[in-house]
Design a binder for these strands. Sequence first.
RNA 1: GGCGCAUUCGUCUAGUGGUCUAGGACGCCGGCCUCUCACGCCGGUAACACGGGUUCGAUCCCCGUAUGCGCUACCA
Length: 488
Amino acid sequence: MEQTETGKQMTHPCRTRFAPSPTGQIHIGNARTAIMNWLAARHFHGQFILRIEDTDRERSTEASEKSILENLQWLGLDWDEGPDTGGKRGPYRQSERLHLYREILDALIQGGKAYLCYCTAEELEKRRQTQLKQSEQPHYDGRCFKLSDKERKSFEAEGRKPSVRFHVQAESVAFNDLVKSDISVPKDSISDFVIARPDGMPMYNFACVVDDHFMAITHVIRGDDHVSNTPRQILLYQAMGWQTPEFAHIPMILGKDRNRLSKRHGATSVSQFREMGYLPEALVNFLSLLSWSSESGEEILSGDQLIREFSFKKVSRSASVFDTEKLDWMNGVYIREKTDIHTLAKLAVPFFQQAGYPVPNAEEALPVMKVIQNKIEKLSEIGEKARLFFQKTVEPENNEAYDLLKHSDSHAVFQAFLSETEQLSVWNSETFILVMKQVQKKSNVKGKALWMPMRVALTGQMHGPELGPVAEILGLDKCRQLVVQVLG
RNA sequence: GGCGCAUUCGUCUAGUGGUCUAGGACGCCGGCCUCUCACGCCGGUAACACGGGUUCGAUCCCCGUAUGCGCUACCA
């Protein structure tokens, strides 16, 4: 039998879940939560379950669900059970589990653990305001708990539709969080809360508990914005006589201003990072290093290493700021060191095309990618860095470049280059270097004065990739043509 | 307002009652390499929120304060 890190014995193998609500693009913070759940499941050789929490009918869409699954897959996460793959504990969409909630709800009401509440949203809000005004703690006063049959009937006659409220009886609730250690909440800080809407749709805290129970989730790993929800959920587990799972609340991810990450901070959805040319492995690596660190202290970690090294003990308790500069660096590491050049070329094709360059496939992208591989940190920089290979005409980028072309030494270099290449039939990086050596002899110009004019002639720019490979990709004809152009 | 949680370089983090003159990474600065830029390599900059305790000794333990975040929904 496996042991959890708190020493409690697990009666099932580790089962974790990621339970997004399909109300938009998957957010970077949610993605991190998904990654942690996935890592934990894989580390403990358990199962990772995907569940769609679509009880908010107003905001849930099918398109969102589809996009969430796609982006999770893009990140490289896989799940053992989910809405698309199925599984023994399904269905995996809350909207398809309504009958189950209904059953539990009835049982709860029968057992006196929950009751119908006829208060309207307006009434509730009004009372809340009064409580606030009297600097009281806003809470539900429990008035519908002791409704007489007569009162109930009169409410029904008014056409009021009741919601279902959970009757809180506990003194106080305490639990041991795998990340945050002991957390306890005093009694009266929790008042009777709604667990189902008048239309029968379950509320988050309720549905979540029912599903986690029936899906046999052993570790609930989620953002620490759920810490305050946990006591409510534990009360529910207790009322139903179910065993509570382990809880692990991982800290929030903050924006640069230390506020909760939101659109104001720029890109926040996984798909946006994908479009900007971040590699999934880099994003996963970076995200897993937020509020977590490896035992070894390594920073560049593959998925397998992440799985191997995963541990709740290494999750820190405080929020972290999402630092794109470090992400950029890490993505650069993946581009230049951690990704096979052929794979990279393949991934790059859409970015060439987006920039309008005629690159139909990975074969065409390959040589250029080899040359600019260590010049970019994101694939979206391809447009800028590869421009020199596709531009129709070459213009010196600034006065300095222009002056360089007009220098008399440069003139000699160009002349020599043309005569040296006149009879050439073989053309590649090496022959270009050989030619330049000859040019040096002939023109008696060397070093910077030799290479820089050639660079500007071929690319128009003062900076750029190594000239040999550039010349090779450009081809002999194009090179000669460009040199003729600057001479004329 | 109440309750909960947090607080080590600018950022991500390591760390333990003495080995901390606090380690690593990103960024930044300087140098090397070099046809340029980048890569790479070498070096540097920079932090234990504050105030009380406990202790021979606290970054590490306890209590306050401040600040931040979260929850306090018929959102999830």
